[in-house]
Design a binder for these strands. Structure first.
Length: 827
RNA sequence: GGGGGAGUAGCCCAACCGGCAGAGGCAGGGGACUUAAAAUCCCCCCAGUGCGGGUUCGAAUCCCGCCUCCCCUACCA
């Protein structure tokens, strides 16, 4: 028998699968499609093909979904298991700016590298369904969906303040600006209003919130989405401005504390500020507004900052107090801790009840009226003495009767800023007319292809790069009028909002997908990806999906039924006594067990893999040394899929040895079966079958190891039937080796669609079981009894086993747990 | 401050609805095979479950109060 030559085995089977199109998945209507089979759609979050290539962390989730996909195929499902590329995005554009390589070229190269690495791991993707968001045949339909959003009134233009960096000549995202300076280069940035496209995700806030209940998702992700949506119930209350016809509306979650409102605060950008500011205060207010404009929301709302603000000189009238009551005349301030974009951009400040307001009041010497004492109200007129619950209701009723306010629900969720001033993204299918009118590009003229541009540097005046594609921008219609194309591009999220739908029917040139294919495959049954997408991607995709559902284009109201976040694969990193990072490959273990590098002791810690820590592990190296099957198995065996764990090179030989031992069992076969080995195999099949659906892959692998150990130890050789069944359950984890085993057993075809082996429940139980015997909960002995023996028989056997301990004692109670234990309670 | 999760052998990790703390792997020790080594095989060693209470015949598991670590979020009125 030849040794376990993984390099040879893996190359041959990967070639076999490709040549035989083993994992091609026909959809409804296609030849070879069997509509009687149940479907299973198992999806990975598709990657952004970065220049760095894969590291061993990426495949952790891919291994899990591949095990599941291969398992479900063998269980008789039509399995949709596709892969594609989230190819538009900033890094490729920045790389292009630095190197002069066109993003399309660089991205295509990265895709090829990613694909080679994924194929080297033997994943059973249907590569014939591969999609790429930068492909015009794909983004044509991204544009098409945008048009449906526009038609529904869910896409609109607005002037929105964004970060602008004059030195870089570009608009930056919030996270690219730190302390008012660009992350790259540290250039000063300013807030500047620019025309932007927005998507009205807020009109779906309540449904996005409610439908979370229907999803089998991690509680943490649901919690994050709930918080992001941020529903809060309260009231809007109108405050007149003293001595003027003006008034403004505040939002508060505590209308019942109205009697304690001793001042009001408007956001600096609030439109009323200019009108009500008195001449004496105007200079201060203007200066404050100018400063606030330069700060991003992140900075303005950072906790560490002291509460700043200035008085407008104007007063508001607290509607809780009768006209003329001096307590009702309260100053109006401008302060940047109030945000225009939340609620109404104005608050009533109740320093007696709210910490932020109290801090502000103290800093500015403002009055504080306590209104809540223990479980009831004080200083609150008609609310005094009421319970807090009744008080809220009373106050809202009181306000509504007088037309001063009303119940109101607000959300923290904001509309989605959907445009970027970038080159490398989907163009909008929008035309601007000579008189400012807006028109959609007709469906039949889609896609609006991205023009070739040699220079994608943003212009100094804030114009997006596309504005310079002059031949592209101008469009003349039949009547000779000249239209201008929209020159913003879509953000990177756009393509990933619907890619899971395109996978259902990826080559359709007449529609984004065939309704029959969508109806058959959707929803995604199992979605695996990193927790970093817990909010944005998953919320945006849910939003688009609901819009498409409302418009009748998709059959389900939610796209992803079950979601799992795979844990991070970390790595060891090292630093020396001075704290300097040391490359992982330079570290050796000294005989006394300490770690040294270049003669110096180093300290080991666990961290994210990153270039700067010099601890990135490349799957190519692992595959070269141990093979893809070992790598897959190790990733499955590291621990729960959801848990993060460091990549530990020392553990790889263990799983590799397991595959070698398993392979060695296939040398010769023997009859009849050893009953113990046979029973153990049934237990193993039961364990693996039960573990895979919940992705408890580590325990499934452990069970297979246990069986191989048992079979090896018995030494009598396994039977051909046992060899077949074991190869089949090993197949989802180590598919190359399993195929090789299967072929060695005389099967010419791939085992990918063989039936998953069954187990006999009657074989799971041993004939004899050992039962623990306790006295007062303490272990005092053990007895062997027939499995499922009668209670009385077990009890008397147990009683005999601990007779000496029971002598002279009164037995008050006997607890018998069948096949487990007997406990004598003596008094 | 708020939310989510985790603490079990030297290390990674199991233990279902409360029922003998251990499946598996690594590391360590001993032995077999070998001229020797590698590889392989067999055997062994090791914790009472972060801390303190409670419920129970019985708690890693349930309840209460703490500690530590990780992740997310944070002036949202």
């Amino acid at each position: 028998m030849q040794r376990y030559d993984f390099a040879d085995i893996e190359a041959r089977w990967q070639d076999h699968w490709q040549r035989n199109r083993t994992f091609r998945t026909p959809g409804p209507g296609a030849p070879g499609f069997d509509p009687r089979k149940p479907k299973f759609y198992v999806l990975d979050m598709f990657p952004y093909p970065s220049a760095a290539g894969l590291h061993v962390g990426h495949p952790k989730g891919y291994v899990a979904t591949d095990v599941l996909a291969r398992f479900q195929r063998m269980r008789g499902c039509n399995v949709l298991h596709p892969m594609g590329w989230d190819a538009f995005g900033l890094p490729a554009e920045q790389y292009a700016l630095q190197t002069g390589t066109h993003p399309a070229v660089a991205t295509a190269r990265n895709v090829a590298a990613f694909k080679r690495q994924l194929q080297a791991l033997g994943f059973s993707y249907d590569w014939e369904r591969e999609i790429n968001t930068m492909d015009p045949g794909y983004y044509r339909w991204t544009q098409w969906i945008f048009e449906r959003l526009y038609e529904k009134g869910l896409a609109y233009q607005a002037e929105v303040p964004v970060w602008w960096c004059p030195a870089l000549g570009t608009v930056l995202a919030n996270e690219e600006v730190i302390d008012g300076k660009s992350e790259r280069g540290g250039h000063p940035c300013v807030r500047r209003p620019l025309r932007q496209w927005m998507l009205r995700i807020t009109s779906y806030a309540q449904r996005l919130l409610d439908d979370l209940e229907t999803l089998d998702w991690p509680e943490s992700v649901k919690a994050m989405q709930r918080e992001w949506i941020g529903r809060s119930e309260g009231a809007e209350i109108r405050f007149p401005v003293a001595g003027s016809a003006d008034s403004f509306v505040v939002f508060t979650t505590r209308p019942d504390t109205l009697f304690g409102a001793t001042f009001c605060v408007l956001a600096p950008e609030h439109p009323l500020v200019a009108r009500i500011t008195t001449p004496q205060q105007r200079a201060d207010v203007e200066r404050y507004r100018a400063e606030a404009e330069q700060k991003g929301e992140l900075e303005r709302t950072s906790l560490a900052r002291a509460k700043t603000g200035v008085f407008t000189g104007a007063y508001a009238l607290n509607p809780a107090y009768p006209q003329g009551d001096p307590r009702g005349r309260i100053p109006i301030y401008v302060a940047d801790y109030v945000l225009l974009s939340y609620g109404t951009g104005a608050i009533m400040a109740v320093p007696g009840g709210d910490e932020r307001d109290l801090e502000f009041a103290r800093a500015h010497g403002l009055a504080v009226i306590p209104v809540v004492a223990g479980e009831t109200y004080v200083n609150s007129g008609f609310l005094d003495g009421l319970s807090l619950e009744d008080g809220r209701k009373r106050m809202v009723d009181w306000l509504e009767e007088r037309g001063l306010g009303r119940c109101k629900v607000t959300y923290r969720l904001r509309d989605w800023l959907f445009s970027r001033q970038r080159y490398w993204g989907e163009p909008f299918p929008i035309l601007h007319g000579p008189d400012g009118q807006i028109r959609l590009v007709p469906d039949e003229d889609l896609p609006v292809t991205l023009p070739e541009l040699a220079d994608f540097q943003p212009s100094p005046d804030g114009q997006p790069p596309l504005a310079r594609a002059s031949g592209w921008v101008q469009v003349t219609d039949a009547s000779g009028r000249v239209w201008q194309r929209e020159t913003n591009s879509m953000p990177q999220w756009a393509g990933s909002c619907w890619y899971y739908l395109r996978f259902c029917d990826p080559h359709n040139a007449r529609a984004p997908w065939d309704p029959a294919a969508e109806k058959y495959w959707m929803p995604v049954d199992f979605y695996v990806g990193g927790a970093e997408h817990a909010v944005l991607h998953l919320l945006y995709a849910r939003f688009w999906h609901k819009v498409l559902h409302d418009a009748g284009y998709v059959s389900t109201s939610e796209p992803f039924r079950k979601l799992v976040n795979q844990g991070m694969v970390q790595a060891f990193a090292y630093r020396d006594a001075r704290g300097a990072l040391v490359a992982a490959e330079a570290v050796r273990e000294a005989p006394d067990g300490t770690l040294v590098a270049n003669g110096q002791p180093v300290e080991r810690f666990v961290a994210k893999m990153s270039k700067s820590l010099r601890n990135v592990v490349n799957p190519d190296d692992v595959i070269r040394e141990y093979g893809a099957d070992t790598m897959r198995l190790y990733e499955a065996f590291m621990g729960p899929v959801t848990a993060s764990a460091p990549w530990n090179p020392r553990d790889l030989p263990g799983v590799h040895r397991f595959l070698q031992r398993a392979w060695r069992l296939y040398e010769t076969f023997a009859e009849p079966p050893d009953p113990e080995v046979e029973r153990a195999l049934h237990r193993t099949i039961a364990k693996v079958t039960g573990d895979i659906p919940g992705l408890d892959l580590n325990t499934a692998v452990a069970a297979m190891m246990e069986w191989v150990n048992t079979a090896t130890r018995k030494g009598g050789g396994i039977t051909r039937s046992q060899a077949e069944r074991f190869a089949l359950i090993l197949a989802p984890f180590a598919p190359h080796l399993a195929e090789e085993m299967w072929q060695r057993l005389g099967h010419p075809e791939s085992l990918a669609y063989e039936n998953w082996p069954a187990y006999d429940p009657s074989q799971l139980q041993e004939d004899t079981v050992e039962v623990a015997v306790q006295v007062n909960g303490r272990l005092r002995g053990r007895v062997l009894v027939p499995a499922a023996a009668a209670r009385a028989a077990v009890e008397s056997a147990a009683r005999a086993a601990v007779a000496d301990k029971l002598e002279g004692a009164t037995i008050r109670k006997v607890v018998v747990i069948p096949d487990k234990l007997v406990n004598f309670v003596v008094g």
